[in-house]
Each structure stands twice: as structure tokens, then as C-alpha cells.
Amino acid sequence: MNSLRKNIIAIAIAALVLLVGAPWLYINVIKDDAPSRLTLDTVVATTPDTVVSPDTTSVVVPDGIIGTWTIGPESLAGYRVKEILVGQSTEGVGRTSSVSGTLEIVDNSVTTAEFTVDMTTLKSDSAKRDAQFSGRIMDTATFPTAIFTLTSPIVLPANATTGEKFSTTATGDLTLHGTTVAVTIPIEAQLTNGKIAVQGTINIVFADYGIPDPSIGPIKTDDHGDLELLLVFGR
């Protein structure tokens, strides 16, 4: 009887070690690290299309920045969600370059702007996560796009044309999962290489958009995640 009890205890301990150890091994040894957050440093910070004014230290853009700018193929959008697998923490990150849109600059303000993300093309490092994202969670067959529309002008600072990074906010309507919510996105921007690069991150509470809890089985998530953007506008 003592031998049987010892065997049962040994099996229970082995199962516990396997339950905790396997996720740890997968997350810390096998699984690739989540991609770093998007930053303006992703865009090469050179400005060959600009010249330095002889009487100032400012960079003068020959054609100016007034007019319409269009999102280019360098742009990225995606999500970042914290995941807990049997006590082990990791991040789920999905991204796509299928982003389109424009912005209009009049005088010293961005007067209109809109971008659309093709949600059906978002991919992570896990086919199983992607299947859950496109199906049960975001239902991209029904809601294939996410759209942001600027509702308040963005007044550009004096250094907007100097090639320096500057911070501001973009206030508008974000439509996600078929639900539109008024949001303000903190952004950092820079005129670089004749293009306007804009990076922004906004925390999304899933319930605000009618998005179901992404948790499934042993994988638990927070009730919120980040929408990450790196938009590169050219013309």
C-alpha cells in the first residue's frame, strides 16, 4: 500500500512539473520573442529631399507639406495582447501591412485624415491564434476592416518641418468589430526622407467594441490590448 501511495504521489508530482514546466519551456526556450513595439526608428531617419536654410538651423522642405499625403506600403498596424499560459506570461502580437488612407494638410494643420486596416490579413507567429482572432474573436468575415477617421484638426508645431520628432494627439472615431468609439490616440510623428511617419498606440478595452473575451482553455488574456500603428505617408 505504501508503495502504491508513493507511486501515486510521484505521478502527481511529475504531472504538476509537466503542467508548469511545459509552458515555461515553450515560452522561454522554444517560442520566439514577441516583436518589439513599433517606433519611428523603424523608418530610416534621413531626409535627402530637404535642404538646410542658410540663415536658420531648420530644415526646409522644397515642396512644403501642404496638400494630400497617402499611406505607403511601409506602413504597419497590429495588436499586442498579454497572454498567461499556466502562470507563464507572454505576448500575442499580430501585424499587417494592408493599411490604406490619406491625410490632408492645410496651412499648419492636419484637417482631414482617415486610415483603414484590412483585418483579414493580420498574422501572428501562431496559426491557432490567427484562427481564433479571425473567427471567434474578431469575426473578420463580418467585420473585415478597422477604420479611424479624424474628427478634430491636428495643429502642427513649429518644428514639424525640421525633421525632428514631435508628439501630439489624434482625436477621431475608431470603428472596430462593427462598433464606433470616439478616441484620442497619442502619436509621435516625423518628417523623414520626404515622407511623414506617424507612430501611435492606443489601449483597447475589448468590451467597448463588443469583442468577446479572447481567453480560451488554459490561455488567459487581459480584458484589453494595444492597437499599434506605424503609418508612413508619401506623395
Results as ranks from 00 to 15, higher is better:
A14H: 09
A15Q: 01
L16R: 09
V17N: 10
L19A: 15
L19K: 02
L19D: 07
L19T: 08
V20S: 05
V20I: 15
G21V: 06
A22E: 14
P23A: 02
W24R: 00
W24T: 06
L25F: 15
Y26A: 10
Y26W: 08
Y26L: 14
N28V: 03
N28Y: 14
N28W: 05
K31A: 12
D32I: 04
D33C: 03
P35E: 04
P35V: 11
P35Q: 12
S36V: 07
L38E: 00
L40A: 04
L40F: 03
L40G: 04
D41I: 03
V43A: 06
V43C: 00
V43P: 04
V44E: 13
T46P: 01
T47P: 03
T47I: 09
P48D: 15
P48W: 14
D49G: 14
T50C: 12
T50D: 11
V51Y: 15
V52P: 00
V52W: 09
P54Q: 07
D55C: 02
T56G: 08
T56A: 09
T56H: 04
S58G: 02
V60K: 05
D63L: 10
G64W: 07
G64N: 05
G64R: 08
I66L: 09
G67F: 13
W69N: 03
T70Y: 03
I71P: 00
I71M: 06
G72I: 10
P73Y: 11
P73E: 12
E74G: 03
E74P: 00
S75K: 03
A77F: 02
Y79K: 02
I84E: 04
I84P: 01
L85D: 04
G87F: 09
G87N: 08
S89L: 10
T90K: 00
E91W: 13
E91H: 12
E91Q: 10
V93Q: 03
V93L: 04
G94Q: 02
R95V: 01
R95F: 10
T96V: 06
T96M: 08
S98K: 08
V99A: 06
G101H: 09
L103N: 02
I105W: 06
I105L: 05
V106Y: 09
N108R: 14
S109A: 15
S109T: 13
S109M: 11
V110F: 11
T111L: 01
T112M: 07
T112Y: 10
E114V: 14
D118P: 07
T120D: 02
T121A: 07
T121Q: 11
L122G: 00
L122D: 00
K123E: 15
S124H: 00
D125Y: 10
D125M: 05
D125A: 06
S126T: 02
K128Q: 10
R129F: 14
D130Y: 06
D130N: 12
A131E: 14
A131M: 11
A131D: 13
F133D: 00
S134L: 11
R136Y: 11
I137F: 01
M138E: 02
D139M: 07
D139T: 07
T140G: 08
